[in-house]
Write a protein that binds this DNA or RNA. Structure first.
Lengths: 231, 231
DNA sequence: GGTTTGAGTTGATATTTATCACTATATTGG
DNA sequence: CCAATATAGTGATAAATATCAACTCAAACC
């Protein structure tokens, strides 16, 4: 199922970006009429670094990963996306090009809204503009802290932080399915996949987590926070 | 010399932020009248992470460093600032708090403009707003590439990149004074100061750079680019 | 059903990088 | 000018991390 979503109103979408509340009924209607929708299966690329930022993307269901492509094929997973958040990189206002790639981790339904439309609302609607500014500022801050973590913390600290992020920001539960492979968990926490295995095992031996089959359960969150904080 | 700059017009300042050209004469005048100016000597803190983002800062002369304060006192120098650029962190639109610190590296003359004023122009002036958006987007992209560099490149690659940045973006010359100590050069390139010394010596032995006293001269820029690109 | 493929895992090893201990060389304040 | 202090530099060592070479196991495919 894909194509224009003629009969849908983005204003009443339960997964709408919170900043849409600053748009007028007219603007909402215009946007809803120009909305495209598409489905992706797990593993599919939604957009690729280097492609034009012609559309803003919103997930209406599913989870996707955002990653930077570094030198000789190495990747850095910046974070995971859930419904409700605007997905447009900073390239939109610099060179109209994506600087990171977005790939579906689960089956995903995504809405595409023409960036020209978004930019016109930024121009004409100060409240919406401020909301957009706030959104990219928050992302920028998160990048700062991700960078500090990757550069200054050691592997156990980075892994602890990564697990806490998955539990608290993505799954909202201390028990979660392995949406990320060991390889991807390594790209998320800045280490080789072999070291992901070793550190998870170490955490498991100490009773901090359990890995039942492929599900990870956090048993001792306080200890995990401690490891994360101590680097 | 400090205080309100009553007789100065930010519109005709040779070091003005390029986005000021999008302001009306009236806005420029208002801003000029509410401008504060202050001098700092090398080493002085201009603002500190955690303090309120009450003002946007512009340098009218000198060079300053922007750095993140990480765990147990370790710092990451995000970059150096020259006149002509807006200096406000992403915190301005999130929690009205600075998330990085700004310290003068040379003697610096800085202008302070009330953030309320800047924000009001963002609200009322779409072109100015777009310019602001573009500015923070560019900074965000730079942070991405800084992160990739720090995480994926090895020490020689990071140092080569750092030296090229100093030559091309800050000094506009392949020969420059040691505005950064070895310690700071380490914070800029993500390594311990001892390793800064070792790698500079190695570059020097290979004839890529010369370190005459405390001045660094780049002799073989192409090789430096190669080292930077190969990580 | 057998086989291929890829992820997960493990141990051994190599590489990279930080830390420590120390010397040398400036720089600064009295 | 000299002591005090900070920065620069050096070598040895330890710690952190990546890489390599296997091996296991389960899913996917013919």
């Amino acid at each position: 199922m894909f194509g224009k979503g003629i009969d849908v109103n983005c204003g009443s979408c339960p997964n709408a970006w919170s900043n849409f509340k600053n748009l007028s009924t007219k603007e909402i209607k215009e946007m809803s009429q120009n909305r495209f929708q598409s489905n992706f299966t797990a593993g599919e690329m939604i957009f690729k670094a280097g492609s034009p930022t012609s559309n803003a993307v919103f997930l209406s269901s599913g989870i996707a990963k955002i990653y930077l492509e570094g030198f000789d094929g190495k990747k850095i997973i910046l974070g995971l996306c859930k419904p409700g958040r605007l997905i447009v990189g900073p390239g939109a206002y610099v060179d109209s090009t994506h600087h990171y790639s977005l790939v579906a981790l689960t089956d995903v339904r995504a809405c595409f809204i023409d960036m020209k439309l978004i930019k016109s609302y930024v121009q004409s609607n100060p409240l919406f503009s401020e909301g957009y500014m706030k959104d990219i500022s928050e992302k920028s801050l998160r990048t700062f802290y991700k960078m500090m973590s990757l550069v200054q913390k050691k592997m156990p600290g980075r892994m602890a932080e990564g697990l806490l992020a998955l539990a608290d920001d993505i799954f909202m539960s201390d028990e979660f399915a392995p949406i990320l492979s060991r390889q991807e968990l390594g790209e998320f926490t800045g280490m080789a996949k072999e070291n992901v295995v070793r550190i998870l095992k170490e955490f498991s031996n100490e009773g901090i987590i359990s890995t039942n089959g492929s599900t990870i359960t956090i048993n001792d969150k306080e200890k995990l926070k401690l490891i994360s904080a101590n680097g």
